[in-house]
Each structure stands twice: as C-alpha cells, then as structure tokens.
Design a protein around this nucleic acid. Structure first.
Lengths: 165, 165
DNA sequence: ATCAATGATGATCTTCCGGTAATCTAATGC
DNA sequence: GCATTAGATTACCGGAAGATCATCATTGAT
C-alpha cells in the first residue's frame, strides 16, 4: 500500500553510477557488475528511466547511459514515480474503492497527510546528495559481498548523512 | 518496501465491526457481509488477529469474535504489526543486504527517520478514534456502492468491489 | 449423546513482481 | 556494407500475496 518497490531501490543504486549529462556514457553492463543488479533486469529498468526522461541511453559503439539532467535536479520522488507510478498514492488505506477526496473514509485525511510527509521527504533528497556518501556506503557493501572492483574509487571520509529530520 | 498491505486494510475494516470486550460476539459471516471481505479469507485474518491477542474468537453456538481489549487500546500500528509483521521496517530502502545500523547505506538514516514518522502516526490512531467517524465514513461508502445492509443483500457481480476482480 | 452452529485449516488458483534467457535492433568503426 | 558493440524486446519461470473451496474441529443447545 505504499510500495517503494525493490526495483525503485535498484533505480537509485543504478543512478548513483551515472555521470552528469555530457559525461562519458556508462554501460548497462558496468552498472550491473558494480551494483549486482541482474543485467537483463537492469536493462529494462534503464529503459523505463529513459522513457521518463531521467536518463539518455544510446546503443552501439560507445553507447551507454548518462543522466538526462544534473544530479541535483533528480529527486528520490522522481525515481519512485518513474518506476512505481503514482497510482498507489491515491489508494485508500483500508481499501475502500469508493473513497476519495469528495467521499472520504474515516482515515482518508490521516493517510493523505501521512503520505504527504513521506513524499516531501523523498522530494528533499537528490542524486547529488547521494553522491556525497556514495563511496563510503557502497564500498562497505561491496566488501561484505565480494563484488567486482570499481575502476576508480575515491573514498571520502564519513560525512553526516542525508538525514532531513 | 513499506507494505501496509491490503490485508491490513481488511483488518482495520473488520475490527471496526467488533464490540468492546465483553460485548456480544460478532460472527465472521456478519463482518464479511458488512465489509465485503471474502468470508474464508477473513476467517484466516481473524485467526491471525486472535493469535496476536487483539481479538478473541469462539466457535460453536453463540460463537463469534470480540475485541480482546478496549478499542482505545488498539492502534493502527498494532494491526499493521499483527498482519504484516515488522521485518519490512528493517529493510534497506535501496536493497543493500549489508546495510544495517552498524553498517549504514547512504540513505539509512534518512529512511529510518521517514519510517519512524509514519509509525508514530500509525501509533496515534486507535480503533476508538475510528468508531467516532465510523458511521459517517462507512455509510457514505456503502451508499455510493450499494453494498449490502447489515441484513445481507446480494452484491452485483460486475460492479467494482473491494478485492473482487 | 447428538446435532447444528461456527471458526480453523489445507489445497488450489490467480495475479503480480522479480528475475532469466534468447533474440531483435540500432549505432559505430572499418 | 558488414561486423561489432551496445541497448531493446519478447517469452517465460518462480515465488509471494490475495482469494476461493472444501473439509475438519470445537462449542453449546437439546
């Protein structure tokens, strides 16, 4: 009933690997190896993101994927919306199909406000925010899972996390 | 990734129909007719709630279901926990298996705090709160959907109805 | 003791999501 | 233009959640 799906999580991790618009395209294959997301599944995911205008994918020699706009202009909400859509935001908490703004159930206002708080938070975090902690977080994960080494890694010291509280 | 499942919604609706502890037991059948939740599915749901100590169910003559404690002492969080458990609260937003409090991903703190805000809200609403608006909310819904009066009509097959496809 | 009322339970079906594999199509270099 | 490199697309598999059906087990009235 509030599906920030696993695939949206994948989307976040994939996007963390991408360059700013204009940079060298990153191969889906590279993202797959780096993140551990299955190649073929990632390919579809990327395609979805491309259709939504968040990334640009090119085929053939020197193809790959780049951000369609600056990382600072892509929020978690954008990713959630691109992958999971927005339909779930309108679903009644207790599943009454007749429930709507005009015809609210007992919990309508309560739930609407709850979702809103979550969305505000999702909107407050951008890809650029993530990049700042990218290495620290992902490196730890990679070590504990024996995944492939990235080409270059510059580990920034532990910073205060993105928390907006 | 934040599954307040459809079944939890059912649980809320079902619980709205119950009496205070000590009151006359309500039949699963009655709840099913009143709410539109499939009888057999509801039966399992009720059983789960009983195992969690939220309701008491008795079989046989004059059996039925009653609240195990006052409505004012049962929160939405209780229901969510009884049905969906708590595992999902600990899952990493972006699906990193190595992510934990000791080994946080970039979004760990952010997500933890987000979930917390939701939980605080779920904890702030009790069944008793719902009862106060029960009639207004549910009646409106029933009217606009032609659902059975507590005294059982039959439901039209083609109309969109909660949980029927 | 018996029987009917009523919840409990297990098998099965469907749908959706995550995931795999094979193949198609577009872009580039030669 | 042809081969190679990439992403795009299609078909299919498996598991979990929702839902249904049939059957079992318990309680209380008589």
């Amino acid at each position: 009933m509030l599906p920030l799906s696993q695939t949206t999580g994948y989307a976040v991790r994939a996007m963390q690997c991408l360059q700013e618009p204009g940079g060298h395209p990153v191969l889906v294959e590279e993202i797959a190896e780096y993140t551990g997301i299955p190649h073929s599944y990632l390919s579809k995911l990327v395609h979805k993101l491309a259709k939504k205008g968040l990334v640009v994918a090119r085929r053939g020699h020197h193809g790959g994927v780049v951000l369609a706009r600056p990382a600072a202009e892509i929020t978690l909400e954008d990713l959630s919306e691109a992958i999971d859509g927005v339909a779930w935001r309108k679903r009644c908490l207790i599943g009454l199909l007749g429930c709507s703004d005009a015809n609210p159930c007992v919990l309508h206002e309560f739930w609407h406000e709850t979702l809103n708080q979550v969305l505000v938070r999702l909107r407050s975090v951008t890809l650029a925010d993530l990049a700042q902690n990218h290495d620290a977080g992902v490196e730890r994960f990679r070590e504990s899972h024996g995944l492939a080494e990235p080409a270059a890694h510059e580990l920034e010291p532990e910073r205060e996390l993105v928390g907006h509280s």
